[in-house]
Design a protein around this nucleic acid. Structure first.
Length: 691
DNA sequence: ATACATACC
DNA sequence: TACTGGTATGTAT
């Protein structure tokens, strides 16, 4: 048994002598933003204080249980791996399969787009600072009960967003707390987003305080104005840096708030880079394949968006700590069915560079929930559900959606989450009554209960602003429409009327469902072909998409070493070359000699983190403060995880490189991404844990 | 279709 | 004493 397994056993088993807190628990209690943050104090000391402070609480007990379960899952995972290996699975074959994935990913690596991630520094805290200058230089937090943000002075003590106030006070006894004022954040957010839009009208907002920009078009236009022709890579580098500095200075001038930024050829890298020189600074990654690979090789996997605490632990158990390890351990990851392709893309730093504004049609659900002090009286719980239902109804009406399925969520006193949902066959949730009726029924059949949270959410939405019927397919093909254009008077509408008029009816026209089928029909899945080909040991087509689709080169070139071959070269020969090339070049470069464990703490990559959390304050919240300003209308402008989209292809403003379209023509019902991507294998750690 | 888990801001 | 709220997406059944 390896030492890895032993340590997995140790953390899974009963590591609870009454004084000892297991390593994983220490990390778990440290909270989600810990890895992103730079720390002045010794982190392990801080972690101990945090865990010690909440030990014995129901919250802690629940976390400990989850931690234990995870440990067991991880053991099963390792068992499964060992069993498969003992059964003589052909690791070499899996490795070769992965190598064709790598080759494919490399062939589509796109360095032509200038992607920027802009991220406001300690957003809520700095807005509060503007309103109250006495907070200057002071360790303070924003929020009540739980911190949504901590000032940089507070962070020096290990105080983090998402941390309960009482724990934060243990770390920093003189911590001052100020309540959150969400309306003002919305106003400032609107102002900075406006600034960002000047540089990329198609900017993708990510929550209140960050955004992705594609500066490619802006840069090109600026160069045309200058009369600058072709530029050296060095000149481009300087130009990118200068423009981003201008963006940040403009934000500061307009709002008084500081911004940090990351500049890179795709979203994942840009996002990671925006953290490096935080606060109030920027970081640019050179736009070369080599620089990207050097950067990712030692990058801790936890930095990859979508890899959270749980995935981190699973991967760690497999010996995958850095992105470089993903390449080294690719065969094992593939063996365990752990979304290798997505991991490889991240590991190679070749992820999506598509920046587009969120569209209204993208919204999938609308919900509302609240936390309160433990309650178990039937009448009290009913009153809360009624209240939540009322608020949800108003939100739905304001946003102009109805939905087919409704779910009730509740958290018991011991922090266990439960959901119940119901979908209407012939009608839609639309009125307060229709929502309340089912919600109350669902609650009552679960009673008696001791609860601390109740929430309702509507799924399977129908957009009331979108025309139903067939004409939608002929008129405005969804993409070109932007948000602002059609929501002028959204806030002026009178919904009380609607409530009365619709009273209790569920029956609504439900014809708008065909859309998905249309979308499915045009989805191709090039990667499926790759998988199929690899599995049947057929050679992978060698040329990149550009080559196959936009031109007809008589020669085929290796995307790794750029060597060219006559088109008559057989697939077998080509594959042989790939093997050699990959093992020589990419793989050696990527596999860290020995993934140095020092990286985790010596922080070559991160420095400070932040992240505002939450939006509405808990408990008491009048229905009147439903957002009403224009930026709030944009709340559906959320982020798709950068790694879940595929790169290259049209980024709306990409005029620099030729547009590339999907090549694989195969059909795959699961794929959602028209651009090129399939979802690929899932990244969920439990996918490969079953049985 | 439903329930639950993970992740992000 | 004390641990948010809103959204997405994936898996299991």
């Amino acid at each position: 048994m390896s030492s890895k397994e032993q340590s997995a056993m140790a953390s899974a088993g009963s590591s609870s002598s009454s004084t000892e807190i297991s390593d994983s628990m220490l990390r778990r209690m440290a909270g989600q933003s810990v890895n992103k943050a730079g720390l002045k104090k010794d982190q392990s000391e801080i972690n101990k204080i945090i865990a010690e402070a909440s030990k014995g609480s129901k919250f802690y007990e629940n976390e400990r249980e989850k931690d234990e379960k995870l440990g067991i899952q991880i053991m099963k995972l390792l068992d499964k791996r060992d069993r498969l290996l003992k059964e003589g699975v052909d690791l070499r074959r899996l490795e070769r399969e992965c190598d064709t994935f790598i080759q494919r990913i490399e062939s589509q690596r796109d360095l032509s787009q200038t992607i920027v991630h802009v991220d406001m520094d300690a957003f809520y805290a700095n807005v509060e600072l503007l309103a109250d200058p006495t907070l200057e230089g002071i360790a303070f937090g924003v929020g009540t009960g739980v911190l949504t943000t901590a000032s940089y002075e507070a962070r020096a003590y290990g105080v983090r967003s998402g941390m309960p106030v009482f724990v934060a006070k243990k770390l920093c006894p003189h911590l001052r707390m100020v309540p959150a004022t969400f309306n003002s954040y919305g106003e400032y957010s609107g102002k900075v987003m406006e600034v960002f839009r000047r540089f990329d009208p198609n900017m993708a907002k990510v929550g209140m305080d960050e955004a992705f920009l594609n500066l490619t078009t802006y840069i090109q236009e600026e160069r045309e104005k200058d009369g600058t022709g072709q530029e050296s890579e060095n000149a481009m580098h300087k130009r990118r840096e200068r423009i981003v500095r201008t963006i940040r200075e403009t934000c500061k001038k307009v709002t008084g708030l500081t911004v940090s930024a990351g500049i890179a050829p795709n979203k994942m890298l840009a996002k990671i880079c925006s953290d490096i020189n935080k606060p109030n600074n920027q970081y640019i990654l050179p736009f070369t394949r080599q620089a990207v690979l050097d950067f990712t090789r030692t990058l801790p996997i936890r930095k990859i968006p979508g890899i959270g605490r749980v995935s981190e632990r699973c991967l760690e158990a497999l010996g995958v700590i850095t992105c470089g390890d993903i390449i080294t351990k690719r065969a094992e990851l593939h063996l365990l069915n752990y979304g290798v392709i997505e991991l490889l893309k991240a590991g190679l730093g070749a992820t999506s560079n598509v920046v587009e504004a969120g569209r209204r049609e993208d919204r999938k659900s609308v919900g509302c929930e609240r936390t309160f002090r433990e309650k178990s009286k039937r009448e009290e719980l009913i009153a809360i559900v009624e209240d939540v239902a009322e608020e949800l109804t108003e939100t739905l009406q304001k946003l102009e959606y109805t939905g087919k399925t409704l779910s009730l969520k509740y958290k018991t006193h011991d922090f266990k989450l439960h959901t119940k949902s119901h979908t209407l066959q012939h009608g839609e949730y639309k009125t307060r009554d229709s929502i309340q009726t089912w919600a109350l029924k669902a609650l009552e059949e679960s009673l008696p209960l001791k609860l601390r949270l109740l929430g309702l959410r509507v799924n399977q939405l129908r957009d009331l602003r979108k025309k139903g019927g067939l004409e939608q397919y002929f008129t405005n093909p969804s993409h070109s429409r932007k948000l602002h254009e059609d929501d002028e008077e959204a806030e002026g509408a009178d919904f009380n009327n609607a409530i009365i008029l619709d009273s209790d009816e569920d029956l609504e026209d439900s014809e708008a469902a065909e859309t998905e089928q249309v979308e499915r029909a045009i989805n191709g899945s090039p990667f499926n072909d790759a998988i199929t080909n690899a599995a049947s040991s057929t050679a992978v087509p060698f040329a990149s998409k550009q080559e196959t689709e936009t031109t007809h080169h008589p020669m085929i070139s290796c995307p790794i070493c750029s060597r060219t071959f006559p088109s008559s070269t057989t697939n077998q020969d080509l594959n042989a070359h790939i093997d050699v090339c990959l093992s020589k070049d990419t793989i050696q470069q990527l596999s860290s000699r020995r993934s140095s464990p020092i990286l985790g703490s010596s922080e070559s990559v991160s420095s400070t983190g932040e992240k505002s959390v939450g939006s509405k304050s808990a408990n008491k919240r009048s229905r009147r403060d439903i957002p009403t300003n224009k930026e709030d209308e944009e709340d559906y402008d959320f982020l798709r995880p950068p790694t879940s989209r595929n790169h290259s292809t049209t980024s709306s403003s990409a005029s620099v490189s030729p547009t590339v379209t999907s090549s694989g023509g195969s059909s795959n019902k699961k794929s959602k991404n028209v651009l090129m991507g399939t979802k690929e294998a899932p990244r969920n750690p439990f996918a490969f844990m079953k049985r």
